[in-house]
Design a protein around this nucleic acid. Sequence first.
RNA 1: UGGGGUAUCGCCAAGCGGUAAGGCACUAGUUUUUGGUACUGGUAUUCGGGGGUUCGAAUCCCUCUACCCCAUCCA
Length: 747
Amino acid sequence: MNESKNFLRTIVEEDLKSGKYKEIVTRFPPEPNGFPHIGHAKSIFINFGIAKDYNGHCNLRMDDTNPTKEDTKYVEALKDAVEWLGYEWDKSVRFTSDYFPQIHDYAIQLIKMGKAYVDSLSEEEIREYRGTVTEAGKRSKYAQRSVEENLDLFERMKKGEFKEGEHILRAKIDMSAANMKMRDPLMYRIRHVEHFRTGDEWAVYPMYDFAHCLSDYIEGVTHSICTLEFENNRDIYNWVLDTLELTPPRPYQHEFARLGINYTVMSKRKLLELVEGGQVSGWDDPRLPTIAGYRRKGYTPESIITFCDSVGIAKANSMVDVAQLEFCIRDDLNTKVPRVMCVLDPIKVTIENYEGSESIDASYYPEDVPKEGIRALPFSREIYIERDDFNENPPKGYFRLTPEQPVRLKHAYIISCKEVIKDTNGKTVEIIAEYSPASKSGSDTSGIKVKSAIQWVSAAEAKEVEVRLYDRLFSVEAPQGVEDINPDSLKIIKNALIEPAVISERPDERFQFERQGYFYADPVDYTTQKPVFNKIVGLKDSYSKKKKATPVKTQEKKVQIDGEVVAMSEKQQVLFDKYTSELKLNSEVANTLARDENLSSFYEQTLVELNSPVNLANIVTNEVAREIKETSVDTLKFTAKQIAELVKMIDDKTISNKIAKQVFEEMAKSGENPEKIVEAKGLVQISDPAKISPIIDEIIAKNPDNVAKFKAGNKKLLGFFVGQVLKATGGKANPQVVNKLVAEKLK
RNA sequence: UGGGGUAUCGCCAAGCGGUAAGGCACUAGUUUUUGGUACUGGUAUUCGGGGGUUCGAAUCCCUCUACCCCAUCCA
């Protein structure tokens, strides 16, 4: 289903190709402490989707390590959400609590290895000892306890001999780690609380950081996919699995950006606030971004999945426009759902010249929807139309009924307005109209041209229904709290009028109310006696959009202030001066070199080998710098001497800069001598125009379109042709020569 | 302030040294008995800013800026 690539899929594919894993195992691991929302849907889509597409499997695991917050009703909601979205989890639902015994054993093992200890500092002390982001922490004196003492204490913690907070099990890592999470993270805490599954069997519970990686490992998970805020926890994840020296394969953690949608809130806390504050009717309120909410509103699981697919997976924090979600549900429903007529704000129309009544066979679907089905549509002298569809003083561009302009009643006749009846306040209460007998839909011989066809219902047969019009819950893009709530997020229309077939036949539970939007028979409140419809989403409406003056956003270009650059030390300054004046390096290169001791000393070494200061400097500041950044100076595979040899070949024009890059990469990987690499791969530069020329001709012949574009003035394309030639020669053609020749030939 | 991330169109997002994909939104037009749908076109001379390397840079190097995450016995 999914051809779109993202960084996770790339990783998975590489791991499969390299044989790191034979089969992909993912997992969706929510804590059962709240109702799932569309953010969970994204995670479900990613985890189950990847497993499915790569023939692996995905586990559904409840991460129930904190008994104070969790409940079985949430696990039901979570299971429900996964099923509704159309996924199947592997075997039965798993629980971290099922692994408590194993996780406990691993903790014992860590204690025995001297890698974990029971700390007895108070909560406050622990916080103090942890230090701050800029200052190292200090280790608790209890960290010196013997293995035996730790084992004994931990055993007694487990048995429930201590009060909560009295002791805690910590990993012994590094109290001065730059990553705060690594400052002896807590692994087990005492909790005298009933766990919804294990009851009072345990008095200690593992923390997320200890339980999660091990649960993944126990389940044979290969790719542990989570959201960005766990990036800092990855070090612990790896530390636990590595120090335990578990038999491979082991899982690795990968993070993606969580889903944000504008005009709504996604955090558990804010959602809870809305539910408890009574701003919404419950967790399944159709205005909420919860799975239950979307479901009750009438969204299809397919539309949620396509939405998740369409927003992509990346690492940049982002806020997706709701319009994208709305597009997905409209697009899905458009081809699935029958069209019916419903009048939300009725005004009576009496068709003077019509007598009696008739039944019209009307198709449920427009011609462009490949589905069939008709219903009987009663027509009579008295009908209702939408108040909006009549205007006595129409603005320009109004297509509907006016005293001068006739309109078609969808599936029926063309009518025109004869008289407008008003009450004492001047409000229109009825329209007296006339119909054209020859204009019947499907057999129109009247010749009357209308600009629009409107929905209507027959007065006698129409059924009264309740329609709930939902709009976005918040009126601002990034709502902070209840103060941003949209006061018009729900409009209830108690007595809308709908054609009778909808109530008696109900061919489906979702409908398009012609010209208005998609609606869903409310799964809770709907009864045949008192039908209730929820608005899923409105149709696109380019008319009302046009009416509203679109505010033109003037985007000012942001002016960026450059920060101050740290001054050079005296030593660096001396080097810099030497590089610029003696060696004639440009100031930028000299600057980079002078400021980095590793780089400058490497550079000095190359200088001893070859007198080509500028080219050497360029390679060192750009290429060598990267290798040092990625690994470190000590692990470089190549030597300064080899770099000098490489530069010599550039100076000799044996190889081009482009080839040099290729050669350098090989050197960085294998540590082979540059001459050897050049020889082995036959990378000698081709500069002879006679040899290059025919290749260029061929490329030009193959790309007539681009030649035309180039001649039309698209000068960028020169690069395209040069690139093609270089590709054809395996990078060996001299690019300067190619450039010159191509430019000549294309003139 | 230390560490870890991120920055490509109004909103998402591909891209990994050789012509800046795609979707949403917007916009113009064609078809239309839904001001819907479908279809056709238009929308980034430029990738957070500034330098550098290269024949060629969104991609490599340096530097600055902005935003997010980390100092719960939550996950």
